[in-house]
């Protein structure tokens, strides 16, 4: 007995120092999110050993990774984006233990709409071994910022009719419009014979929105829209004199006038924080809510603002980050949307 106690006493510091093993699965290589995730542990002095696996946009590789995770049995699995996360944990109501990871805690990051993607039944709890962070500001916060920039009574939207995510955003936007007193003009992308969206006729659709009274073009987190934003949608909007508001950093990078976006690095830190709750504080993932950030960056493209004759109101110089400016000002603070 005494020997046993001595052994435990001798071993325990060694046990404590053993790094946590994390298995990270990414979609298109390491991003700022992973840097923020790893930096979080370093900053908090939590020893971790992260194994990275990348599927290079090919979700067919996921079942093999699930097998590997079963074999290696890490302390925690980290996933990037809706596709990877669904491939590892499955939908919440059809999580077959034979196909998905159910007995190892999973923290996801960069999932735009975790409920719509059926990763979790509600933001409060996944009711299973999963938690994570979203990177999109609430629609209410985005609309508030939009109207602070330029008050509007009608907002326009282009969406992919085959994406449940996009349809969900449209519903939410209409509900928000009823609350805040604005109307929504929505046009679906044209579709091919297979029902997939095509870029045909985008300038015409935008012209329709403009004529229907839209004062902003809202760019929701929509996969097809993201592929067409830079080359087609945003330039067409500018041509029509319609300001575009981006909901994610890539859409902002496509040349939108303004956007309330999260920094990928911070999203990674937040995922690290959730992982800390599980690994160090021994909390069950089902008891950790799925959350989005409380502070986002308001980005404004001044060159576009000038072209559209829509300079931002003075107060926004206090907190917005000006892109493509003639003058490189110091970093600007983030915006705190009211939740």
């Amino acid at each position: 007995m005494v020997v046993l106690i001595c052994l435990v006493a001798w071993l325990s510091p060694a046990l404590a120092a053993r790094p946590f093993r994390i298995y990270a699965v990414t979609y298109r290589g390491a991003t700022e999110v992973e840097r923020g995730f790893a930096d979080y542990f370093a900053e908090r002095g939590i020893p971790v050993e992260i194994t990275y696996r990348d599927i290079a946009l090919d979700t067919a590789r996921l079942p093999a990774l699930v097998e590997e995770i079963r074999r290696v049995r890490p302390d925690l699995v980290y996933t990037w984006g809706s596709g990877v996360t669904l491939g590892i944990v499955g939908p919440w109501d059809q999580a077959d233990p034979a196909r998905y990871i159910t007995d190892i805690p999973v923290v996801f990051s960069l999932v735009a709409a975790p409920v719509n993607a059926r990763i979790v039944p509600s933001m409060q709890s996944s009711r299973r071994n999963v938690t994570g962070v979203s990177h999109v500001a609430s629609l209410a916060a985005q609309m508030k910022v939009m109207s602070a920039y330029k008050a509007f009574r009608c907002v326009g939207l282009l969406y992919s009719p085959n994406e449940p995510n996009a349809l969900a955003v449209l519903d939410d936007l209409r509900a928000e419009g009823r609350r805040r007193g604005f109307t929504v003009q929505a046009r679906a992308f044209a579709t091919d014979a297979a029902g997939k969206p095509t870029p045909d006729g985008v300038p015409g659709l935008i012209g329709e929105l403009r004529r229907a009274g839209a004062e902003w073009l809202y760019l929701p987190p929509d996969s097809f829209l993201s592929t067409q934003a830079k080359g087609l949608v945003v330039p067409a909007a500018q041509q029509a004199g319609l300001p575009a508001f981006a909901s994610t950093e890539p859409l902002m990078a496509a040349g939108a006038l303004a956007g309330l976006v999260s920094r990928y690095y911070t999203v990674g830190q937040f995922a690290g924080y959730k992982a800390e709750q599980i690994l160090v504080n021994k909390q069950s993932p089902s008891r950790i809510p799925v959350e989005t950030l409380t502070r986002f960056s308001l980005q404004i493209r001044l060159t576009v603002a000038r072209r559209l004759g829509l300079l931002p109101p003075l107060a926004m110089f206090n907190y917005a980050e000006m892109l493509d400016a003639d003058f490189s000002a110091p970093a600007k603070p983030a915006v705190e949307p009211t939740r």
């Binding site: 003075l314 107060a315 206090n318 003058f327």
Partner: peptide, 22 residues
């Protein structure tokens, strides 16, 4: 300082928007 920042971004004083509101 706020007005100075806006002017440094190349906006002329008469062009400033939303000043009264602020």
């Amino acid at each position: 300082e706020l007005v100075g920042t806006a002017i440094h971004y190349g906006i002329q004083m008469p062009e400033l928007v939303g000043v009264e509101a602020h």
